[in-house]
C-alpha cells in the first residue's frame, strides 16, 4: 500500500546513487538527505523511522541483495564475453551475423567459460596452499 510518501519515495529511489545512506520511508528505502527534506513536511514524518531490521525484513533484504549481487556479477561476465567474442569473431560487421560468425561466437562463449573455470580453479588451489 503506497501512501503519498511511498509514491514520492519511489520516484526518488530511481536517482539513488551507490554508497548513499538510505532510510525507510513508508516501507521503502530512500536517501537520507531526501528523507530529512520530506520529513519537514508533516505528512512525511514516517520517513524518519530508524531502519527496521527485524528478522523477517532483514532476511528479505539479504535475499534481495544477494540475488542482485548475483545478477550484477552475471551481467559483468556476459558483457566481458560479448566484448571478447566480438573481437575474436566479427571482423567486418555486415548487415547481419553470418552463420560462421554465430558458430564462432558460440564456440567462443564455451571456450571463454572453460578459460574462466581453469583460472578460478587455479586461483582456488593456490589460495588453499597459502599458510
Amino acid at each position: 500500500m503506497l501512501g503519498a510518501c511511498g509514491r514520492r519515495a519511489l520516484l526518488l529511489r530511481r536517482r539513488r546513487k551507490p554508497g548513499v545512506s538510505v532510510v525507510r520511508c513508508g516501507g521503502i528505502w530512500i536517501e537520507e538527505e531526501w528523507a530529512s527534506v520530506l520529513a519537514s513536511k508533516s505528512f512525511f514524518t514516517d520517513c524518519f523511522e530508524a531502519p527496521i531490521m527485524e528478522g523477517e525484513k532483514m532476511g528479505q533484504l539479504m535475499t534481495m541483495v544477494e540475488s542482485q549481487n548475483q545478477l550484477n556479477m552475471m551481467a559483468e561476465v556476459l558483457e566481458t564475453i560479448a566484448l571478447r567474442c566480438f573481437e575474436k569473431c566479427i571482423y567486418s560487421p555486415g548487415k547481419e551475423m553470418t552463420s560462421k560468425e554465430k558458430d564462432c561466437s558460440m564456440k567462443c562463449m564455451d571456450r571463454f567459460v572453460e578459460t574462466m573455470n581453469i583460472v578460478s580453479d587455479t586461483l582456488r588451489s593456490r589460495s588453499n596452499q597459502l599458510p
Binding site: E76, V77, R84, F112, M116, L123
Partner: peptide
C-alpha cells in the same frame, strides 16, 4: 568474481 574475470580476460 571481479578478480577472476579480470584474470580470465
Amino acid at each position: 568474481q571481479a578478480a577472476i574475470s579480470k584474470l580470465t580476460e
